[in-house]
Each structure stands twice: as structure tokens, then as C-alpha cells.
């Protein structure tokens, strides 16, 4: 099971994910984040992936989708603390050219 924890500070929303991010898990993350996006205006969305132990291309789809939404709303998005395996998938997909990964 993937755990989702939200932390909001002014207009910055940090989403902490814990577990495995695959097709089975993405719909819940998508819903949770999108609900926040309509609730209150955000200037930045931060995805903290330090506790994500697995991610495949379903995770890429999720990130690109949220990135596009944030861009439409005039905000930005960044990814924090991906492990080596996650970073490999992120780099392959070219996401590092779209947003800050630190």
C-alpha cells in the first residue's frame, strides 16, 4: 500500500509518498493531489519521494500530468529525494529537463 501524507505551507504543497508507485497506486495519488489543486491556489507542488521504493512509467505519467496542471495554474513543481532506482526511471523519461529534481 502506498501512503500519502500532505503538508501545506502557504501556497506550497509537499506530498510525501511512502511505498511502491505503480499503476495500481497512482489513481489514489492523482485524486488526492488534484483535490488539493482545486481547493486552494498553489504556487508550488513538491513531491517528496524519499520513501518510494519502486516506481515504473505509471509514476512518470502521474508526474507529467501534475506538472501540466501546475503549469496551467501558473505554478511550478519539483521532485525531492528520489532513490537511485527511481532516479534512473526519472532520467530515462527526460523529466529532469522539465523540472528540478534534488
Amino acid at each position: 500500500m502506498l501512503e500519502i501524507t500532505l503538508k501545506r505551507q502557504n501556497r506550497v504543497l509537499t506530498v510525501y509518498l511512502k511505498g511502491e508507485l505503480d499503476h495500481h497506486a497512482v489513481s489514489k495519488v492523482k485524486e488526492t493531489i488534484d483535490l488539493q489543486l482545486v481547493k486552494m491556489p498553489l504556487s508550488q507542488l513538491i513531491l517528496d519521494m524519499s520513501a518510494v521504493s519502486f516506481m515504473d512509467s505509471s509514476g512518470i505519467g502521474l508526474i507529467v500530468g501534475r506538472y501540466n496542471k501546475m503549469k496551467c495554474l501558473g505554478g511550478s513543481m519539483k521532485i525531492k529525494n528520489p532513490g537511485l532506482n527511481i532516479l534512473k526511471v526519472l532520467k530515462m523519461s527526460g523529466l529532469s529537463k522539465l523540472m528540478e529534481i534534488s
Binding site: K30, D56, S57, S58, G61, V64, G65, M92
Partner: peptide
């Protein structure tokens, strides 16, 4: 429409 990245086969290949 399902927000698929289209990277599945590329990932399998690499």
C-alpha cells in the same frame, strides 16, 4: 486520457 507516459516499452528495452 489515462495519463500514460508511453514509456513502457522504452523502459523494458533499456
Amino acid at each position: 486520457e489515462l495519463e500514460r507516459s508511453g514509456m513502457g516499452f522504452s523502459i523494458m528495452e533499456s
